[in-house]
Amino acid sequence: MTVYHPGELAVQRQLGQSDLAARLSRMVRAEIPDAAADFLAGQPMVVLSGADDSGHVWASLVTGPPGFMHVATDSEDAEQIVIDALPVTGDPLREVVTAQPRHVGMIAIQPQTRRRMRVNGVATPTGAGLLIRPDQVYSNCPKYISRRHVTGAAGSSGARAVRHAPSLDARMTRIVSAADTFFIGSTDAAGNADASHRGGNPGFLQVLSPNRLRWPDYRGNSMFMTLGNISVNPRAGLLIPDWDTGITLQLTGSAEILWERSTHAQCSVAFTIEELVELSGVSPLRWSEAELSPANPD
């Protein structure tokens, strides 16, 4: 029995990586290894993704002191991930995950060590946080992750600014064009969610117009969880963090795979923005200047 859905299998065939993906499927499990539990417990942030009732996909940053995520067992002795925090007020995913159990994707990333871990499953609201019952747990390689270190934490600055817009303005365009990191949320045809990371040198996330973006898809783990989802459901959401200020840009819209190859990319993805949300004060963490990944193509 494969862990991949038809969209993932189709992309693997399209790019000639089916055999490698089949071998790597053994690393995907529903159980949470001890090393993964220890990794989660040490992280001060996580990215969640999911779809709202209209099908729009959002990706959100959730932060807390190390230990705010941890693994526990329920009354049936099943493992679950406890997150003692929620997306901030004003985040469109907050109402989604607090209303009822939802399929979510989750990626925990540690920029200092370029480590990351992904979990897909069902999140149940607890009032002050979430319980995630995992369906898929796996790690990814450190490729394309910019190294950063926490330099401090900002105090509360009072009311959080929330701005909704249909497209990018000039200031937002500068943030997007300077990004070396963003996160993407996607879902398959059945609504199962995934959250993933994309990284590269500044400029790899190209602004083609105020509501149209494009990025190269560099060679990764050959599973194609994200591209596989996009191939069967174009709805997707992007999260672009401003590491200096704690501001986030959340974009929701539709993605399209462009199959032409280049020297460094196996394909590219175009993204059409339908709505964006800019939130201030999402993260108190302040980070050092990025040390770009040596794996990034020029």
Results as ranks from 00 to 15, higher is better:
M1N: 13
T2Q: 10
H5N: 08
P6C: 04
P6Q: 02
P6W: 00
E8N: 07
E8S: 11
L9Y: 00
A10D: 09
V11W: 02
V11M: 13
V11Y: 09
V11N: 07
V11L: 03
R13C: 10
L15K: 10
L15E: 11
G16E: 05
Q17I: 09
Q17Y: 00
Q17K: 10
Q17F: 04
D19S: 13
L20W: 00
A21C: 10
A21K: 09
A22K: 07
R23F: 08
R23G: 04
L24M: 15
L24H: 06
S25Y: 00
V28W: 00
E31M: 07
P33C: 03
P33M: 05
D34C: 06
D34I: 09
D34R: 12
A36T: 14
A37Q: 06
F39K: 12
L40I: 07
G42F: 00
G42Q: 13
Q43D: 08
Q43T: 06
P44T: 10
P44G: 06
M45D: 02
M45H: 13
V46I: 15
V47G: 06
G50F: 02
D52G: 04
D53R: 13
S54R: 09
H56A: 14
H56R: 15
V57P: 11
W58C: 06
W58F: 04
W58E: 06
W58V: 08
A59I: 05
A59G: 08
S60N: 04
V62F: 07
V62Y: 04
T63I: 06
T63E: 13
T63A: 09
T63M: 00
G64C: 08
G64T: 11
P65Y: 08
P65I: 02
P66V: 04
G67M: 01
F68D: 05
M69R: 03
H70L: 11
V71Q: 04
D74Q: 11
S75E: 13
E76A: 15
E76H: 13
E76M: 09
D77T: 12
D77P: 00
D77H: 09
A78G: 05
E79Q: 15
Q80W: 14
I81R: 07
V82A: 08
I83M: 12
I83K: 01
I83R: 01
I83D: 03
I83Q: 02
D84M: 05
L86M: 07
P87Q: 07
P87G: 13
G90P: 10
G90L: 03
G90K: 05
D91P: 06
D91T: 10
D91A: 10
P92R: 03
P92C: 04
P92M: 07
R94T: 12
V96F: 02
V97K: 02
V97P: 01
T98C: 11
T98Y: 02
A99C: 03
Q100M: 11
V104N: 02
V104R: 03
G105Y: 02
G105S: 03
M106Y: 01
M106V: 15
I107S: 03
I109T: 08
Q110E: 14
Q110L: 09
Q112I: 00
T113W: 01
R114F: 02
R115K: 12
R116E: 08
